[in-house]
């Protein structure tokens, strides 16, 4: 049961993030929602690669025959984190610019583009 806990946390994080996108009106909070989904997905990837009792996947230092955790999901997670930083920074930058123009971060009031 305890082994499945990371996956439960992933589901909770992704669901919270999606709920944030629909329910929260502050643009910064929307970006945080994206961050929540991203954490959930990253946690899912890392938990996928975990092997019970595994050691870090470094061949030179490993005792022979010891089980290793999977290296690929860690590489994927690192890439995903880097991409996440870029997207978050870009979105926050746009939020700053929007605030300068409008003086608000309320999604209900940022509706110039409609119809």
């Amino acid at each position: 049961m305890i082994g499945n806990l990371p996956f439960v946390v992933c589901v909770i994080l992704v669901a919270l993030g999606l709920w944030t996108l629909v329910a929260k009106r502050n643009l910064i909070k929307l970006v945080i929602g994206i961050g929540l989904i991203e954490s959930g997905v990253n946690l899912f990837l890392v938990s996928l690669g975990y092997v019970h009792g595994g050691i870090p996947p470094i061949y030179t230092y490993a005792p022979s025959g010891a089980p290793m955790v999977l290296p690929t999901p860690q590489a994927l997670t690192l890439t995903s984190i880097v991409i996440g930083v870029a997207t978050t920074a870009l979105m926050l930058a746009f939020a700053v610019v929007i605030y300068r123009h409008k003086g608000t971060l309320d999604a209900r009031k940022i509706r110039d583009l409609r119809g």
Partner: peptide, 17 residues
């Protein structure tokens, strides 16, 4: 239809869900 394209990002995300 114009009302549907409300410009509210929350609604757009809702439609995605």
């Amino acid at each position: 239809l114009r009302g549907w394209h409300s410009g509210n990002i929350n609604e757009y995300a809702g439609w995605f869900l």
